[in-house]
């Protein structure tokens, strides 16, 4: 089995292109979970957490709003939690088929063996995750941290039993394009490090375009063309 995820990292609202929550719903229909991490800083508007939440809900994923210094730790927990939730739904459906009642019909204190089983499954499931990095101008001072956090995420996946591949897409892309392939799927930290130098801030926030690009990349395994 293989798990397909999109992890969105952003510090603001989408302001170009369609509704990102709709794009996330389309991902969910295609078996791709969309998770979102919003970076909070002093001058952020409160509204951006609504959008982050809407994207994650539509994409069957999890979301969190965090200050910049917690970005790396949060990307880890959001990814693990989302894998856990996806597998829990699958296990739950099976349990229901076999014994006729849900995991949630068991008292929480007695649920530990099932929770453990789900985590073991998660550890043994192949992961393919596309990270979408908001590179709009407001992210300028945060990109250094984002780069380190992405490297950190891949490094911490090394401890998983099953393979993990990360790809990185930036939005917007260079010369007016909506997104740019930064790094194709890899499990090589050094390779990823080289590619991440291409993350540069510019322009606005076309979130929906970026989600759509990630979906077509995951489904067709071909690098999205520049638009």
């Amino acid at each position: 089995m293989e798990m397909k995820q999109i992890l969105l990292i952003t510090d603001g609202r989408s302001n170009v292109g369609g509704d990102p929550a709709r794009a996330a719903a389309y991902a969910a229909q295609n078996g791709i979970t969309v998770n979102a991490v919003g970076i909070i800083d002093g001058d952020n508007d409160v509204l951006s957490s609504d959008e982050i939440k809407a994207i994650a809900l539509a994409g069957n994923g999890t979301w969190q709003m965090v200050p910049l210094d917690m970005l790396s730790a949060t990307m880890c927990t959001v990814t693990y939690r989302s894998m856990h939730n996806t597998l829990e739904n699958i296990v739950n459906a099976q349990v229901k088929k076999i014994v006729g009642s849900d995991m949630l019909d068991i008292e929480p204190a007695m649920r530990l063996p099932l929770v453990r089983y789900v985590d073991t499954l998660a550890d043994e499931t192949l992961l393919r995750c596309v990270i979408l990095v908001d590179c709009s101008n407001s992210m300028a001072v945060k990109l250094k941290t984002a780069r380190a956090a992405i490297l950190d995420l891949l490094a911490s996946f090394k401890a998983r039993r099953a393979g993990s591949n990360l790809a990185v897409i930036a939005f917007p892309g260079q010369s007016g394009s909506h997104y740019q392939m930064i790094c194709p799927f890899t499990d090589d930290v050094e390779l990823l490090k080289g590619y991440l130098n291409e993350l540069k801030h510019r322009g606005n926030t076309p979130t929906a375009h970026a989600i759509n690009a990630a979906i077509s990349y995951i489904l067709n395994d071909e690098q999205p063309l520049f638009v």
Partner: peptide
């Protein structure tokens, strides 16, 4: 011996590049 999944960067050996997140 398992992977560390919950941590705070300031107190995490790997965030400082001193050791592994194990």
């Amino acid at each position: 011996g398992a992977t560390v999944k919950e941590f705070t960067p300031t107190y995490d050996i790997a965030s400082w590049g001193v050791g592994q997140r194990m």
